[in-house]
């Protein structure tokens, strides 16, 4: 039951994009079209789940037993960077269509703060192994929900008559603000 709650809370209530402001760069940069937004979301979910597993293992079997907490930032970012590279190579070897769909988004994920944030949150909240996996999965799905919703709105926005100065990033940010307001409706639904 706790696992489902952690999953839901990461996906909807404490949505990484709309309430923690993590992963804003891809959220604004890659939300032009629903199809590319969806690919980005899937790529992020994939990397997030693996990051949750690996960073948990690194933190609990390497950093904490040997009192190397101060290396947390350095080791997490290295884990993420090498993980992304590794995932890219594996996907390239295993499935060409998948690589073509996700390929260009993978390098961008390294500097996506949502991934790093996930690793840090898992370390801060002292989740156990299973909880971490569900947290990572939920956060990824929450990111996908947010970016796909945003892309859907932006596709409609292209047809709207927006003042010249507000076109592009400004109107996207305001739309994101309205989305965040809507997501606030979920606040307090589950408290962990």
């Amino acid at each position: 039951m706790t696992l489902i709650l952690i999953f839901l809370s990461a996906a909807i209530i404490n949505n990484f994009v709309l309430s923690y402001f993590l992963g804003i760069c891809p959220f604004i940069g890659v939300s032009n079209k629903i199809s590319s937004a969806f690919s980005m979301g899937i790529a992020v979910t994939f990397v997030m789940t693996i990051t949750a597993i690996v960073s948990w293992l690194v933190n609990n079997y390497l950093l904490i037993p040997y009192h190397l907490d101060f290396l947390q930032t350095v080791s997490f970012i290295l884990v993420i960077a090498s993980l992304v590279q590794f995932v890219e190579m594996v996907i390239k070897k295993v499935s060409q269509p998948l690589y073509r769909a996700l390929g260009i988004y993978l390098p961008l994920i390294t500097t996506n703060c949502a991934i790093m944030g996930l690793a840090l949150f898992i370390a801060m909240k002292n989740y156990d192994f299973l909880e971490s996996i569900f947290y990572g999965l939920g956060a990824g799905i929450g990111f996908t929900i947010a970016i796909v919703l945003m892309a859907g709105i932006r596709e409609e926005l292209d047809l709207a008559d927006v003042p010249k100065a507000m076109r592009g990033v400004p109107i996207t940010l305001i739309t994101a603000g309205l989305l965040a307001l809507a997501f606030m409706g979920f606040a307090g639904m589950i408290t962990i």
Binding site: L18, F21, V169, P170, I171, T172, L181
Partner: peptide, 13 residues
């Protein structure tokens, strides 16, 4: 969070 997005959007504008 909503306030942050909207304020920054207006500032950009």
């Amino acid at each position: 969070p909503a306030g942050a997005f909207i304020t920054l959007g207006l500032l950009f504008g």
